[in-house]
């Protein structure tokens, strides 16, 4: 019996999120008297796979096969389910990412398992198995009881501290033996975001709203983002107006993020916007309207003109 964690890679590298997942899995394994097997799919070098051991993986199943680079949902779910069966996994953990959300439900059906998506905590109870997740887009939490032998979880990033164990993992090649006909997704074109901090990875996010007055006023936010290695985001009106790309839209219908620090410049804080950012550890609001609802959610605030405040913040950051 084991806890299986699917550690996604990005062009052959793991991210902090992968290690966070292994740490989370290791904490569950400890409670259940089990051990963690990490599953890596794609082309990842052994020295990279070894890093998973340092966060508590006892074993790494390595599916080194370039056919999975097309992210075919059916093939990936077959691979994960066969690893789960081979390892007799009682809990299978994914990241709550685009890919995790795509394949976890398929794997849950294959394993006749109960699925809880977007978990934020360790299970509060193991028999019955009860774990907390966010509902109503961060406006509430619920405790979910899983009434199935196998549990599948997708884990919301930035919810668990990394724990370095200093351990090493046994790396084992694994072949789910899928025929070429299973890989139905035919990728024509891939555009990777390069040279920018990804919004969903960023520990600091700088976000602008309608109060920025126009796309020509973003230079200060871009400079701050460069200085702090932060991701850039915006509110829905800003992406609807075409001031910024819709990939930067955070909020209920855009991206849901949970950075350590979120700056809201000229964002009034509509309930739909807050739904996408309310899990941030610290929220800073700069708005000229002292009645703006964002100040009810923010930890720090400045009532004032964003264009006067931004240069001062940049100066302060440079002096830090």
């Amino acid at each position: 019996m084991s806890i299986l964690v699917y550690t996604e890679n990005w062009d052959g590298k793991f991210k902090k999120l992968s290690f966070e997942l292994v740490s989370y899995a290791a904490a569950i394994a400890k409670e259940m008297g089990s051990s963690v097997t990490a599953l890596s799919i794609g082309e990842v070098a052994d020295n990279e796979l070894n890093k998973l051991g340092n966060f508590g993986a006892a074993k790494v199943l390595n599916v080194n096969d370039s056919r999975y680079n097309s992210f075919d949902n059916r093939a990936l779910s077959m691979a994960v389910a066969s690893a789960a069966q081979a390892e007799d996994a009682k809990v299978v953990i994914f990241a709550h990412t685009n890919l995790g959300k795509a394949i976890a439900p398929r794997v849950a059906i294959k394993l006749d398992a109960g699925l809880v998506s977007g978990v934020t905590e360790l299970p509060s109870n193991f028999s019955p198995f009860i774990v907390q997740k966010k509902v109503f887009t961060g406006k509430s939490f619920t405790n979910v009881q899983v009434d199935a032998d196998v549990k599948v979880l997708t884990f919301s990033q930035n919810s668990f501290e990394l724990v370095e164990t200093g351990g090493t993992a046994e790396i084992v090649a694994f072949d789910p033996q899928l025929g070429d006909d299973i890989f139905a997704t035919s990728v024509k074109e891939t555009n990777k975001v390069t040279g920018k901090v990804l919004l969903t990875d960023a520990e600091i996010v700088i976000s602008g709203g309608r109060g920025m007055k126009g796309p020509e006023n973003w230079a200060g936010l871009e400079e701050m983002a460069d200085l702090l290695k932060a991701g850039l985001a915006c509110s829905r009106p800003v992406s609807d107006e075409g001031w910024r790309p819709h990939t930067e839209h955070v909020g209920q219908t855009g991206k849901i993020i949970a950075p350590n620090l979120y700056f809201a410049f000229g964002i009034s804080g509509a309930i739909q916007h807050l739904g996408g950012v309310s899990s941030s550890k610290v929220i800073v609001a700069i708005n000229k309207d002292p009645e703006a609802p964002i100040f009810e959610t923010a930890d720090y605030g400045i009532v004032g003109d964003v264009q006067k405040v931004i240069p001062q913040l940049i100066e302060g950051i440079k002096e830090m």
Partner: peptide, 20 residues
């Protein structure tokens, strides 16, 4: 396969600290 046991609202936030 799952049951929602109960719900909780996030704890109320402390007052926003204002800077001039």
């Amino acid at each position: 396969k799952t049951t929602l046991v109960d719900f909780t609202l996030p704890p109320p936030k402390a007052a926003c600290k204002m800077v001039d």
